[in-house]
C-alpha cells in the first residue's frame, strides 16, 4: 500500500512540475491584470521548440533554451496585443492557443517524421534524501527541470510578497492601472514584464513535458495543462502559496488516474480529471473561503483623462 502511495506522490509531484512552472508565471501576470489564457499556447510552442531544438542540436539543454525563447515569442505577441493594442484578452488568448496548436501541428508534420525518442532529461536522485520513505522519491528524485520548477515556484511565491516594492507594484497595476500610473509606476512595462515572465516559465514547462516527461513531441502534447495552470491560479485565489498547493494537488489527482486501477479502485477517469475545475469553481464562487480576483484583471490600460 505504501508503495502505491509513494508512487502516487512521486507521480503527482512529477506531473505538478510543469503546472508549477506555468502557473507561477501566470500568477504574476494575473496579479498584474493580464489574463493569459495563451499560457497553453506558450507551453505548446515551448514543447515543440524544445523538442525541435533537442533534435537538431542533440542537446537537451539547447532544447530548453529554444523552449524558453519560443515561450517568450508567444508571450511577446500576447503582450503586444493585450497591453499595447488593448485587444480583448480572452479572444487573443484563446486564438493564440489555436494558432500555437495549428503551427506546432503543421511543424510536427514536417519535422518529426520518424517518431524516434529524443535526448531528454533523466531523474537526478539526491543521495540519502531520496531514500526517505513516502516523500523521498516525490521531492528528491526529480529531473533538473523538476528541481528548477520548485525553485521558480518558490522564488516567485516569495517575490510576489508585498514586503517588496515590486510585489506591491504588480498588485497596484493589477488592481487599478490609472492609480498606479499616477503613482509614477511604469504600468505598460510592468504588464509586459509579467506577460513575458509567463512566456519564459510556460516555455520551460513545455520543455519539461517534451524533454523530461514524454521524450518526444506529439500533436497537442499539452492537452489543456496550460489551462489547468490558469485554473490553479484561480483555485489558489490569486495567492502564491495556495497556488503552489493547488498545483501539487492537481498533480496528485492526475497521478491517481494511473494508480487507481493498480489498487483495484474503479473511479471513472473523467471524474478525477474534473476535480481541479470543480475545486476552482468552489474557490472562486466563495463557497470555500473568500476569494477576489484583481479588480483590473482583463481591463486594458489607457491614460485617458
Amino acid at each position: 500500500m505504501s508503495a502505491v502511495l509513494e508512487e502516487i506522490l512521486s507521480g503527482g509531484v512529477r506531473l505538478a512540475a510543469p503546472l508549477l512552472l506555468a502557473s507561477a508565471g501566470e500568477l504574476v501576470s494575473e496579479r498584474a491584470g493580464v489574463l493569459n489564457l495563451s499560457v497553453e499556447g506558450m507551453m505548446l510552442t515551448g514543447a515543440f521548440a524544445g523538442a525541435a531544438g533537442a533534435m537538431v542540436t542533440g542537446s537537451a539543454v539547447a532544447g530548453v533554451a529554444c523552449a524558453l525563447v519560443a515561450g517568450l515569442l508567444v508571450a511577446l505577441i500576447q503582450a503586444i496585443l493585450s497591453v499595447t493594442l488593448r485587444a480583448d484578452q480572452i479572444v487573443t488568448g484563446i486564438t493564440a492557443n489555436a494558432l500555437a496548436l495549428g503551427a506546432t501541428t503543421y511543424g510536427a508534420r514536417l519535422l518529426f517524421t520518424d517518431g524516434s525518442s529524443l535526448e531528454g532529461f533523466a531523474a537526478l536522485p539526491i543521495p540519502v534524501l531520496s531514500e526517505i520513505p513516502l516523500i523521498g522519491p516525490a521531492l528528491f528524485e526529480q529531473t533538473a527541470l523538476g528541481y528548477l520548477a520548485f525553485a521558480v515556484a518558490a522564488a516567485l511565491a516569495f517575490g510576489l510578497s508585498r514586503r517588496f516594492t515590486w510585489g506591491l507594484a504588480i498588485d497596484a497595476v493589477g488592481e487599478d492601472t490609472l492609480t498606479a500610473d499616477r503613482c509614477g509606476l511604469p504600468v505598460r512595462l510592468i504588464r509586459y514584464a509579467a506577460v513575458l515572465l509567463t512566456g519564459a516559465t510556460a516555455g520551460l514547462a513545455g520543455a519539461d513535458l517534451a524533454l523530461a516527461e514524454v521524450h518526444a513531441f506529439s500533436d497537442n502534447i499539452t492537452g489543456g495543462v496550460g489551462y489547468l495552470a490558469v485554473v490553479a491560479v484561480i483555485a489558489g485565489r490569486w495567492r502564491a502559496w495556495p497556488t503552489v498547493l493547488a498545483c501539487l494537488f492537481f498533480g496528485v489527482a492526475q497521478a491517481l488516474q494511473f494508480a487507481a486501477p493498480a489498487v483495484g479502485l474503479h473511479v471513472p477517469a473523467p471524474l478525477l480529471v474534473t476535480i481541479p475545475y470543480v475545486i476552482a469553481l468552489l474557490a472562486v464562487s466563495g463557497l470555500v473561503g473568500r476569494s477576489r480576483a484583481p479588480s483590473g484583471l482583463t481591463v486594458p490600460f489607457a491614460r485617458t483623462a
Binding site: 505577441i77 493594442l85 495549428g102 501541428t105
Partner: peptide, 22 residues
C-alpha cells in the same frame, strides 16, 4: 497540406482583426 495550416490562417485572421480593433 496539413489541415493545421488552415487553423493557423484562421487564428492569424482573428488576431489581426482583434489587434486592429483599436
Amino acid at each position: 497540406v496539413p489541415a493545421a495550416s488552415v487553423q493557423v490562417v484562421q487564428s492569424l485572421l482573428v488576431l489581426l482583426i482583434a489587434a486592429s480593433m483599436i
